[in-house]
Write a protein that binds this DNA or RNA. Structure first.
Lengths: 244, 244
DNA sequence: TGACGAAAAACTGTATACAGAATATCTTCA
DNA sequence: TGAAGATATTCTGTATACAGTTTTTCGTCA
């Protein structure tokens, strides 16, 4: 179950099926048959069903009255709301961190991440995209840690699993789009302000900044859809969004 | 699977096990053995395991590295954070409802519920507790509906399942406690103001009011713990909270 | 007496069989 | 030709068997 053990059949099923769905191997609303899928993934139905239950929970599958599962489809509004919610919950973590105070070690690590992000985004013409993505993820994880609440942290993880809501949802395959790259320095400025607010114990400001920061993802969704179907193949899950 | 069908074994397992846990049949951190539980509930291990996975997801069970499940235990801080989060997410629903506008029929139904709640709480000395609980639940469900977002609604339902976080978590077996009954008229006034704010399209006010309203639950938690172990037997799940 | 280690028991993860329900196919009749 | 019904196929929900771990028990030795 951990990093060293070889993965269980359940994990194999979860990872495999999630990858199939996000990579667009099925059209939205496709009905999935357990037997066929189990064979395709090389496992039995038992762990596959476990994985399917989990993906229903995550929102990637929908279960009909009869028990059958189909691949979910999303509207623009769904994505917008999911991003809004992620912003709200991250904002709560930021506010609680500001209100309750944060361990200095976390602040310190966050400053280091910000410095590295600075280096990656300093030159608008030559942004180091490869470095950016994991650093960005780390920054957001640190904000979650700062609230020191396992309940809030748990819900942030969940909110990030909502389809296309995670901080890195639109950071895939967009390294070519210039108008997207232009948003990265702006995002980095928001990162800095957010940490400042938390350190200064300014809860309301921290919350507002986290929310506004999430709005960038909404903007990126619009950019991604403008870019046309060419991009839909490269942003995981994007082909499950209807009307485009 | 629906209301008319007889419940599936999985539903039987889910309901049965959840009831056992919330009614305090197990101490916090008790390890549960699947075989024994399945026998006790009169079903096989397969649907029981499904139910246990679900309860892990809900936070009522914890799964160890080895796969074993144990009954969760909560600290005061866990409950406080869960209530805070519920307030934040309900607040988002209220704000979105205000910002985006609400179908008149929903407003109308909400007004009727408020009127009935008025009647139930009008006389501080003779509060109709039996009527209050379902009406209160209905009011909160209506707020969730008003945002007209399946994503937000979904997360509200989830937030309500967080242990002891639901709007009615502390409305069980407290009909005897006078200082608790005293909070009900205050809650009702908040209900009214919240709907007013939504109708007036005052998003920020609606959000703030929903949050403050959730804080009442926190206050009730304190009251419940003050009341001592006598009450712990009557509020489902309360015996899973440590240090009291 | 107490710690260590081996054997035994119990438990979980997974595959599989089977029954009943849902779905698809085919046939019949207007 | 098209709709309706019957049959056949497929699929899901559940029970159960079994293998590999984990946990417990028991006996041994210092």
């Amino acid at each position: 179950m951990s990093t060293t053990d070889r993965p269980s059949q359940y994990e194999k099923a979860l990872r495999g099926l999630r990858t199939l769905i996000l990579n667009g191997q099925f059209e939205a609303n496709t009905r999935l048959a357990e037997t066929a899928l189990a064979e395709r993934l090389g496992i039995s139905r038992t762990p596959l069903r476990q994985a399917m239950d989990r993906l229903v929970e995550e929102g990637l599958l929908e279960r009909a009255e009869t028990g059958r599962c189909s691949v979910a489809s999303f509207t623009m509004d769904d994505i917008i709301d999911a991003v809004e919610l992620r912003g709200v919950i991250e904002g709560t973590a930021a506010r609680l961190a500001a209100e309750r105070g944060v361990e200095p070690a976390l602040i310190e690590e966050c400053r280091e991440v910000l410095a590295k992000l600075d280096r990656a985004t300093a030159h608008a013409g030559a942004i180091d995209f490869r470095a950016y993505v994991p650093l960005n993820l780390r920054f957001h994880a640190l904000i979650a840690e700062m609230c020191a609440s396992r309940i809030v942290q748990r819900e942030i993880e969940r909110a990030n699993r909502l389809p296309l809501a995670s901080p890195s949802a639109f950071l895939q395959g967009q390294e070519v789009a210039q108008d997207f790259l232009d948003t990265l320095p702006r995002a980095q400025e928001q990162h800095r302000s957010l940490l400042d607010a938390i350190v200064a114990r300014e809860g309301a400001r921290a919350e507002a900044l986290a929310r506004e920061h999430a709005r960038l993802a909404r903007h990126n969704l619009a950019l991604a859809l403008e870019a046309g179907p060419r991009l839909a193949d490269r942003v995981p899950g994007l082909q499950l969004v209807s009307n485009h």
